[in-house]
């Protein structure tokens, strides 16, 4: 592989990181909030797919993609709120309800999404940030959707708020010890309900990015498990919003490796290159995990890490 090929692959990875990461980012941030409050919602894949469908449909009918984004968030919010409400009932397992909601959300999206597979809906515009480069591939890689920046700002804001605000303290306390939160007079159920609903909202927006920007179309195969993977990335990012951003970027960049390597003529074993995001994530997990570290950072109330 000569140097120009390496540059091509690196540019593609940069572009991939920017283009592909946003849905992972939103779902992972939403899930981080939910999990920080001590509950897990494994069903955000359902929110993502339903959000994608609703966003596309609304954009198609109203002509406004941003209205579509909002509607996707609301659809996600409703699913999240349902999840949050149900899981506060005693003896109901949040992981299982999440998986059920995955089925329910995708089912609704497929059911009502039939008429929207064919039409073209107005899509979100990107901001060209790379025109100064004079390199068309790089310029393309630097076409950035506003939602990407929203995601980053949100992550920073969330990280700050969790650490420095009263609300953040309440969420963290609820997640670490329900008993002490109760002792402080906090309604654990209410906090978790709100955190799950807000998480659902963000996952819905992640879906809107898929259908309205990249790849920018609605069909039943749109997601291929991004929502599920994003939930897993939260554990990978150890419940830290900033690390969620890096995890999403890494995952997006790794996803670009397969096609990019083929485009410079390396196609041996493309199945493994295509699986690069999963392999890479696993190796980093193994390398970085230690029996104690992960447990220390996990919210104490989280069923999945107990």
């Amino acid at each position: 592989m000569d140097s120009s090929a390496i540059v091509t692959v690196l540019i593609a990875m940069l572009g991939g990181a920017i283009r592909v990461s946003t849905p992972f980012m939103f779902v992972a941030l939403g899930e981080t909030l939910t999990e920080k409050s001590g509950r897990i919602n494994l069903g955000l894949e359902g929110n993502l797919v339903l959000g994608a469908m609703v966003a596309y449909a609304i954009s198609f009918h109203t002509g406004s993609p941003w209205l579509g984004v909002l509607a996707a968030g609301v659809a996600g919010l409703i699913l999240g709120a349902l999840h949050g409400y149900i899981c506060k009932l005693p003896k109901v397992n949040d992981i299982a309800v999440g998986i059920a909601f995955m089925s329910f959300g995708t089912g609704l999206a497929f059911f009502f999404g039939k008429p929207y597979i064919q039409p073209s809906a107005p899509r979100l515009e990107s901001i060209p940030l790379g025109n100064w480069t004079g390199n068309p591939a790089l310029a393309q890689a630097l076409q950035v959707n506003p939602l990407f920046f929203v995601g980053i700002v949100l992550a920073v804001a969330m990280a700050w708020a969790l650490r420095n605000t009263r609300w953040g303290l309440i969420v963290r306390m609820t997640g670490d010890s329900a008993a002490s939160a109760k002792a402080m007079g906090v309604s654990v159920d209410l906090v978790r309900f709100l955190a799950t609903a807000a998480g659902g909202f963000l996952a819905g927006i992640g879906g809107a990015f898929l259908s309205l920007y990249y790849p920018g179309s609605w069909n039943q195969g749109l997601s291929s498990g991004q929502g599920l993977m994003a939930v897993a990335l939260v554990i990978f990012a150890r419940w830290n919003p900033i690390r969620c951003i890096f995890a999403a970027l890494l995952f997006g960049a790794a996803g670009a490796i397969g096609p990019a390597l083929q485009s410079v003529g390396i196609s041996q074993g493309y199945y493994f290159f295509n699986a690069a995001p999963y392999i890479l994530t696993l190796f980093i997990l193994i390398a970085s995990a230690s029996s104690k570290g992960a447990a220390r950072e996990a919210p104490g109330e989280l069923s999945i890490t107990k």
Binding site: L82, V92, A100, S103, F104, G107, A109, K114
Partner: peptide, 24 residues
């Protein structure tokens, strides 16, 4: 559409899981 069954399954699963709360 085939998704009808997905919707049914989703509702069924959620309700069955909710019913756990009634034990006891």
């Amino acid at each position: 559409p085939d998704a009808t069954v997905l919707v049914l399954q989703g509702i069924l699963f959620v309700v069955l899981l909710v019913s756990e709360t009634f034990y006891g």
